[in-house]
Computed example of a mutant assay.
Amino acid sequence: MMLDVRGLGSGYGRIPILTDITLNVAQGDFVGILGHNGAGKSTLLKTLVGAIPVKAGSLTFNNLDMTRLPTHKRAAAGLGYVPQGRQIFPALSVRENLAISAFKGKVAIDDVLNLFPRLTRLLDRAGGALSGGEQQLLALARCLCNAPKLMLLDEPTEGIQPSIIEEIIDTLKLINEQRGITIILVEQNLEFLTALARRVLILKRGRLREEVDPKALHDPAALDKLML
């Protein structure tokens, strides 16, 4: 088991958001997290990556207890994070954005760019001059430059044009299936989620309530019942 989360609780200040989260993710898995706005999906990813402290329970990654580890040590252990809104460096070029993540030499930038041919012709362009879809591709590529074993993706299709969404689907399949990188995906776009995830967890009011087969999400009546 790559990721073992037991009884996890977290929140903002004295406000609890997540309660008694138990989550197990195996090497090579592709897990989707689905829930309404405000259910705690982004909070879960931020807690896993260390941006929000754990208030209860435990978090183990590749047999390493990361419950109290700071974010940079989680990243060094192989935990990658692509936040909602991309958060690239807009004043830096594409090449410079990638170099910041690749500075320890874990992965060659050229190797990552093989997965992102669209970025190759944009290497000298400022990140802020890219389209939303291109920025999302850059955020994914930047994460890969640090050689993650597990990638946490938060709403990667937000504000992205359909043509690049298809490109992102193909790229994530390659990352997961050919490079063996485990992925946890938070996403509201059901077509995107079901095209990728092999299992989907339903998050309601700060708790993981149910695990479902992605095929079940194509049935509107079943989906409505799951999301109640």
Rank of each mutant, 00 (worst) to 15 (best):
M2W: 06
L3M: 14
L3F: 05
D4L: 09
D4K: 11
V5C: 09
R6Q: 14
R6E: 12
R6V: 11
G7D: 11
G7Y: 00
L8E: 01
G9H: 07
G13L: 04
P16T: 15
P16C: 12
I21V: 15
N24I: 14
Q27F: 07
V31Y: 01
V31G: 01
I33P: 07
L34Q: 03
G38P: 05
G40V: 02
K41I: 01
L44C: 08
L45N: 11
L45C: 02
T47S: 05
V54C: 10
A56D: 14
S58F: 04
N62G: 08
D65C: 08
M66G: 02
T67C: 02
L69D: 02
H72P: 06
G78I: 00
V82T: 03
R86G: 00
V94T: 02
R95Y: 07
E96S: 07
L98K: 10
S101F: 02
A102D: 04
A102S: 04
G105H: 02
A108Y: 08
A108N: 14
I109S: 01
D110K: 12
L113I: 08
N114I: 04
L115D: 09
R121T: 14
L123Y: 01
L123V: 04
A129W: 09
A129C: 13
L130K: 06
G132Y: 01
G133C: 06
Q136H: 02
L137N: 03
L140E: 00
C143I: 11
L144P: 00
A147V: 07
D154Q: 02
D154Y: 05
P156T: 00
T157M: 03
P162K: 07
S163M: 10
E166Q: 09
I169L: 12
I169Y: 05
T171D: 01
L172C: 02
K173S: 07
I175G: 03
R179L: 15
R179I: 04
G180F: 14
T182N: 13
T182S: 15
I183G: 05
I184G: 03
E187Q: 14
Q188N: 09
Q188G: 04
L190Y: 04
L190M: 13
T194L: 09
T194A: 11
A195V: 14
V200L: 09
L201E: 10
R207N: 12
R207V: 07
E211K: 14
V212Q: 05
D213A: 11
H218G: 09
D219A: 13
L226A: 13
L228C: 00
